[in-house]
Write a protein that binds this DNA or RNA. Structure first.
Lengths: 150, 150
DNA sequence: CATAGGTTTCATTGTTGACTGAAACATGCG
DNA sequence: CGCATGTTTCAGTCAACAATGAAACCTATG
């Protein structure tokens, strides 16, 4: 249970630069029952200070990974992971790669007209064209399919 | 010229956690003439200490982004960006996302059997299946095409 | 075998950013 | 109005890491 949370948190921290505690929050919110929990509940579950929770919950909701919801007749705020959180993660990674492709594309005219037989920038640009093409021909994301069902 | 290098370096540092100087080295090696340069040359080009160059060149070659090559009758070591460097970047990002998909998949049995009507983990797993499928149906990478040409 | 050009190691410095406790802040209830 | 519960802000600590200069380390060449 908590080991799995820690595994996900480690991924977030190592690979994506997300604060460790934010990763733990995400992990916990993916498997907790019920799916919506107060800052206090999360804090005790993952063993972090309330201050950290405040900071990280604000971060996570500002980037759209968790939803903030309030229940009637209760003054506590509940947090819940957004159903499309991981889709956003994937989309952002792809967008980030695309922008890297743009940078490299912009660099093409700068490369010296040297005996650089088709290497370097040409190879780089090919890769990003390849990626572009893949996503152009890709089926729609699951979320849009889900939305269309209604 | 150097502004472009800086732009790429900033991307590397901000988005990928690569040290700023390593990003500058990569950028410079993408557009310099000739394509292979000594640590000294790079150092003066991007304005960094030789110590930093040593550290970052070791890093970059250990992860396969730059090649180390020596010329006969010269004791200086030359560095050159690998033609497939950016392809590796893309591949690693994809692999990283796939491993994230695995983590989330492994979490599925942990989710409480609560009234979590198809949300959360199910949605997450859909996204990664979607991604998997895309790359399964994708054309081969440019590098393999290039290799086949010979 | 000494030297010179080039590269690496080492210890230090500076900066960044996560994390925390304590205090301040809001808000529903008696 | 005061209290209790829950959340946020603030200032400070601490660890991690990039970057550097200086010194040590090769190794071809004369």
């Amino acid at each position: 249970m908590l080991e799995w949370v820690e595994r996900l948190a480690k991924y977030c921290s190592d690979q994506d630069g997300v604060p460790l505690i934010a990763g733990r929050v995400l992990g916990w919110l993916m498997i907790c029952d019920p799916p919506e929990q107060s800052a206090q509940q999360i804090a005790t579950a993952i063993g972090a200070s309330r201050a950290s929770l405040s900071t990280n919950l604000r971060l996570l909701s500002s980037v759209g990974f968790v939803r903030v919801l309030t229940k009637p007749a209760s003054r506590t705020v509940y947090y819940r992971v957004d159903d499309d959180a991981w889709e956003k993660v994937v989309q952002r990674q792809i967008a980030s790669l695309a922008s890297l492709g743009n940078i490299l594309h912009d660099g093409t005219p700068l490369a010296g007209p040297s005996p650089d037989r088709g290497g370097r920038l040409a190879a780089a640009n090919e890769v990003f064209r390849w990626m572009q093409q893949i996503f152009d021909n890709a089926p729609p994301l699951p979320s849009s399919t889900r939305a269309a069902k209604e």
